[in-house]
Amino acid sequence: MISVGHPAHVHFFKNLIWNLEKKGHIVKIAARDKDVVLKLLDSYGFDYEIISSKGNNLIDLGIELIKRHLKLFKIMRDFNPNLVFSGFDPSVAQVGRILHVPTIVFADNRPDVTKFPPIGPMVIPFVDTVLTLSTVEYDFGSKGIKMDGYKELAYLHPNSFKPDPMVIKEAGLSKDTEFALVRFVGLGAYHDIAGSGFNFDTKMKLIKEIEAQLPVFISSESQLPAQLEKYKLPVSPEKIHDLIYYSKLLICDSQTMATEAAVLGTPAIRCNSFVGINDMENFKELEQKYGLIFNYSDPEKAINKALELLRVPTLKDEWNLKRKRMLQDKIDVTAFMIWLVENYVDRVYNMKLDPTIQYQFRSVVE
């Protein structure tokens, strides 16, 4: 069983689900109605059962968590899976423990970053295994195993993702037209509470400055101001990665999309208040080791950097070389996860004995 609580989880798990089903496994999908989760699942033709709907504040989130526990209990009891795999979800961990179902949760960040609600104590004591990234500087004890990749490589590794050039035409552009993407998030998830990105004034300035050089499209979790509606993304959500691949630059206050751009070889500028304050190590690595992204907490600096990069004619060629270097270091995350879950007990044990066993899933990148 796969439990999906965020749009990024749909992408993270989709290739795992397809490959397991091809191998004859039966996969049940439980889904939280958050942002475009259900639209994405529908677009990929997945069958799923809704477990809860996203809350808008801490009280709503608390009520939702209770509902999620109850719904998951019924689904897991009836389906009786051999294994449940999810994001870092307290409901999956706790219900799995109650029903004695083995559980793996995936963590791409330290659980102690968010002090309230304290998510770590709600998950770690109850779960069987925490799968995390080599960049996450946190000790999950005997339950933790680390993989040397980014979660975005589960769906954007060259072995899994082939960009569709038709997205350019769908966006109303000609083949050789350069364009930029801007992403604004709602910052309403539990891990985003108290965070901030671009405000109204800096959004307006950013779009005006970029538009003076090339076409710009906006992807936004929340309703755009009327003045920015004409820039709204012209393609369906499941095609966003094709558009990122072909764009010259991404500017965002998003966490996930910055890394998606990086692994696709598109320069990314990430700007939010998390930069420099308990920031995730994957962003530091992508900036300091691979030079694929830029991280700013000051919107003015982010805008200036965007304008500087847009003036570089060989920008995408430079970034493709950086991307190649990164891909040669990292593993194919989907291939690794298939290997892990098909013989879960033995392979978790093997990973704890010898973490280098995962490097059989490195790929030669042309």
Rank of each mutant, 00 (worst) to 15 (best):
K232P: 04
A30C: 15
R97F: 13
A93Q: 08
K305S: 05
D47Q: 10
V27A: 12
H9M: 14
I17L: 06
I26D: 14
N109Y: 13
G188H: 07
K54G: 03
V130I: 03
L61V: 06
G5S: 00
A268K: 13
F85S: 06
I269Q: 12
Y44S: 13
V275M: 13
K54S: 10
F283W: 13
D35C: 04
V127Y: 00
Y44I: 00
G276Q: 13
P7E: 08
P299R: 01
V312F: 14
V36Y: 10
I207W: 01
G197P: 04
I98V: 15
A107T: 08
A268G: 15
K23A: 03
K143L: 12
M147H: 14
L249I: 00
V345W: 10
E178C: 04
D108R: 00
A226S: 14
E281F: 15
L72T: 00
N19T: 07
M1E: 06
N57F: 00
I50D: 09
D164I: 04
I338G: 08
S3I: 00
D346N: 11
A258N: 08
V92R: 08
K74G: 03
S134D: 01
D329F: 02
V275R: 12
K203H: 04
P90Y: 14
G172T: 01
R270P: 04
A180Q: 06
N19G: 13
F200H: 14
S254M: 07
H11S: 09
I218K: 01
N56T: 02
Q227T: 14
A261S: 12
I75S: 05
L310A: 02
E209W: 04
F140I: 02
P158H: 00
G291A: 05
Y359L: 02
D354S: 04
T256C: 10
P121D: 09
H100F: 15
L70K: 15
Q255I: 00
K208M: 09
